[in-house]
Design a binder for these strands. Sequence first.
DNA 1: GATCGCATGTAAAGAGTTACATGATTTT
DNA 2: AAAATCATGTAACTCTTTACATGCGATC
Lengths: 191, 191
Amino acid sequence: MSLPHAILGVLEARPMTGYELTRFFESTARWVWTAPQSQIYPLLRKLEDSGWVEGEHQLRGKHQRRTEYSITPTGLTELRRWLGEPHEEPSQRDGLLLKALFFDLSEPENAQAVLEEHITELQDRIEQWSAHRAMLLAQETPLLTERLKNRPAQDHRRISELKAHVFDYLIRQGKLRQQWCQETLELVHTN
Amino acid sequence: MSLPHAILGVLEARPMTGYELTRFFESTARWVWTAPQSQIYPLLRKLEDSGWVEGEHQLRGKHQRRTEYSITPTGLTELRRWLGEPHEEPSQRDGLLLKALFFDLSEPENAQAVLEEHITELQDRIEQWSAHRAMLLAQETPLLTERLKNRPAQDHRRISELKAHVFDYLIRQGKLRQQWCQETLELVHTN
DNA sequence: GATCGCATGTAAAGAGTTACATGATTTT
DNA sequence: AAAATCATGTAACTCTTTACATGCGATC
């Protein structure tokens, strides 16, 4: 749905091969939009058909083919068009909330285990998000560095703050969820 | 993925036809888990094959067939098993965050429009969630009323508070998102 | 020479969306 | 008589996941 535009947005920073995009969507980008390799390669060919990206065939060593994709002017126009399109919230599906709705049917100890494990997992993520946020603010992530090269220096701070702010949301939302789990723990135990 | 268990959880309150389940997943339930009619009917037959639900064939009027599904003891065991299973967070995909990440490429006015519309839409939802939360606390929703009939009176308050707490999360998360959009508005405008 | 990273592809299955299709019963 | 609601079904499509499959190049 939004994957084509996610790819366009990444390629706006610098040209990449399918492999590099795959790695990127498995690492940093996965906090905002995940995509496995099997989605990326076919989509790149589709995007090329649409004229939004352009692949340059290269050689790595003597025999290994690689295709480096760049965003085209048409692609950038499309990205900008999509950015101005109203955001439609997708239909909601939250497995934890669904479970919580029925926790009165399970043993309190089981519910407790589920909630505590989730709190721990969130803690992990919060730390990763915070680390990445700090790197963005310091303009130290590899992709942001590339991206800023094509922008006037006076905009650098604003751009990095905007990207960091996205991770700020993830952090705050994670903390809210932890807090909520904590409260749920109390609710499943009181009789 | 979790739809089978969502259905089991609903049927635990009372038996329903596919039509009633469809309506329920289009109304209240959609805030936690959505499902269209075309998913529900085939799934009910699958759940019956698994022995988790049981369909009773009835007649409405003289000619119209209806099948009312109830949860079986096996189904209730399965629901309880699933409740104790650790919650796996699904891969993240947030179209608004994705857009925000690239807002530095669009005209500030376009980004502003997207953010303001989202704030308004969230306001709408927050009001709906709040209304439903109040009804749950007052034990006035039709399904909760049915559900409480099979529970000792001393548990009623705890159960309704647990369900209301789920909507509490939705409300708080919505407000956090509104707040974040507000901050993003400032970020896209400063130069 | 073995291992790891780079690089690209497809196949099959599952989950979810949108649309089409039909007919009975109840309410206005 | 018309409109709304009750009731059930399928078809086609898109998106996503998991798995299988292959081979080159660089490094240890």
